[in-house]
Simulated scan of single mutants.
Amino acid sequence: MSDSSNAALADAPSDVAAVISRLYVYPVKSCAGVQVEQAILLDTGLEFDRAWMVVDGQGSFLTQRELPRMALIKPQLKHFEMILRAPGMLALHIALDQVEAPARVTLWKDEVAAYDMGPLAAQWFTDFLGVPARLVRFDPEHKRISSLHWTDGIEALNQFNDGYPVLVISEASLLQFNAKLAAQGFAAVGMERFRPNIVLGDASQGLELMPHDEDRLDLLQIATEQGPVRLKPVKPCPRCPIPNIDPATALSSPEVGDLLQGYRQDARVGGAVTFGMNAIVLQGIDHLLRVGQSVGASYHFD
């Protein structure tokens, strides 16, 4: 990153001064995430995020909504392979640079081009999940675009994400949520429940983040060694029952969803319960995001 780019970003007026406190990548959609210290930012989000997906015998995507045991499948990213582990199973090794036969799969209402990862992976997922299942990888030549309504016409690309490249949540939002859980006599939950990519924490010297500040921010500007990164929050993230699922046990904790229902109904998405903001990439493709990098942002006012 040039000195002039650093200076321009540092001098830009901000209502919020934060840092990246955590980064998460979810290599296989709806399986466990991987907390990382750094990640390359692509136009589809963080590198390897939702690059793979599990589908049923008809090619339709599978998630923790129907199969909570998927939470127990833990990926590990190595230099040349992804290693998948699950209770009672031998490790499954997936080469990062190999695929098998072309496939067509369904994700929500989208028909998506993909590559089947072969019979060994299919048998592994079938044995652990107890239903016919296959592992597929996103075809990078396929163009899957976020809703233009929410992106104001900007073509934001995705792999197997639900609909947007990056999910942003603040530490302050989780702290408030856990305080509310504690007030009702329940144990705190981890950030893993909410499956963010970028978590924002307070800078050592800066304006303190308030709970759900991410809902109100315009552009997130991140200082990286290669130059500034600009992310635009575009849509509150509606929540399904997945945050109820304890990632350590795959058991449901309905108090999580019940509490969200009590204070997080969002008129912007028709009253759905939301937690976190979906964001798109405006600038900084191929830049390296790291934990500890400075984030500046201003509030968005309609």
Rank of each mutant, 00 (worst) to 15 (best):
I40R: 15
L209F: 10
F186C: 00
A18W: 07
I40K: 15
Q261P: 00
L282C: 01
I145C: 01
M89Q: 15
A95P: 14
L23Q: 08
L72P: 02
E192K: 08
L23M: 05
G45S: 09
R137I: 01
F275V: 13
L96F: 09
V28I: 15
L260G: 07
R290T: 07
W124C: 01
N158R: 03
L9Q: 01
E255R: 07
K78E: 05
F61E: 12
E81P: 01
Y299N: 04
D246S: 06
K235S: 07
T44R: 13
V36P: 01
D49I: 09
S253W: 14
S170D: 10
L92D: 04
D286S: 13
V189M: 09
E214M: 08
S60L: 05
R290P: 00
P75I: 12
L174C: 02
R104G: 01
V25D: 00
I245Y: 05
D302T: 13
A114Q: 03
A114D: 02
L148C: 01
D246H: 04
L251H: 09
N244P: 02
M70P: 02
P165Y: 05
G163H: 05
S21C: 00
S252H: 14
A17V: 06
I145A: 00
L207Y: 11
V199K: 11
D246P: 03
R216Q: 09
L77R: 15
P243D: 05
V105L: 02
L9W: 07
S204D: 08
S298R: 15
N278L: 10
L72H: 14
L62I: 09
T126Q: 04
F301R: 15
Q261W: 09
V295L: 06
S252C: 06
L92M: 10
K180T: 09
S294A: 15
Q98V: 10
A114M: 04
L219W: 08
T274G: 02
P132F: 06
H79T: 14
L217K: 09
L217W: 14
M210P: 00
D215A: 04
E171Y: 04
L90F: 13
I242T: 13
R268A: 11
W124Y: 08
H142I: 01
D266I: 06
A91F: 01
I280S: 00
P233W: 01
S298G: 07
H300V: 02
R134Q: 09
D266G: 02
T126N: 03
A18N: 05
V291K: 12
E111V: 15
K143Q: 14
D56Q: 11
A279S: 14
I94N: 02
S147H: 12
A86S: 09
L46K: 14
R50C: 02
F301A: 01
T274C: 06
L207R: 12
C237T: 13
L181W: 12
A248Y: 15
V269K: 11
L209V: 10
N197V: 03
P233E: 03
Y24P: 00
G163V: 07
E111I: 15
V55Q: 06
D3H: 12
A101I: 03
D49H: 11
L72A: 06
Y263E: 10
H300A: 07
V166G: 04
D302Q: 11
M1H: 11
Q265S: 09
A17Y: 10
S14N: 02
A18I: 12
W52M: 06
Y164C: 00
L157I: 05
L62H: 04
V136S: 10
Q221M: 11
V105W: 07
G292W: 05
